[in-house]
């Protein structure tokens, strides 16, 4: 069974973080929300495995409520 990978996987973490932040530059909050939604859909499809996605959603939801 595939498992959500949570160990550090980035060769250059700061580059990745900057990539995410930069992609939202000059966007309104609504536009950013749209971008995020499209990004999640693209990445969810890339992952493909619903169990991995469910696990990621579970971890992401922790502490939100």
């Amino acid at each position: 069974m595939a498992k959500l990978m949570t160990e550090q996987r980035f060769a250059s973490p700061d580059d990745v973080y900057q990539l995410l932040i930069d992609s939202h530059r000059d966007l309104t909050p609504d536009q950013s929300t749209r971008l995020n939604a499209k990004l999640i859909l693209l990445l969810a499809n890339h992952i493909g495995d619903p169990e991995v996605l469910a696990e990621a959603l579970r971890v992401a939801r922790q502490g939100v409520e």
Binding site: T33, R34, A37, K38, I40, L41, L42, N45
Partner: peptide, 17 residues
């Protein structure tokens, strides 16, 4: 609604959507 609209937007060019 945001996800729905994102699906519709992506569907134009992205077959998976």
């Amino acid at each position: 609604r945001v996800f729905r609209d994102a699906v519709l937007e992506l569907a134009v060019d992205q077959p998976f959507a």
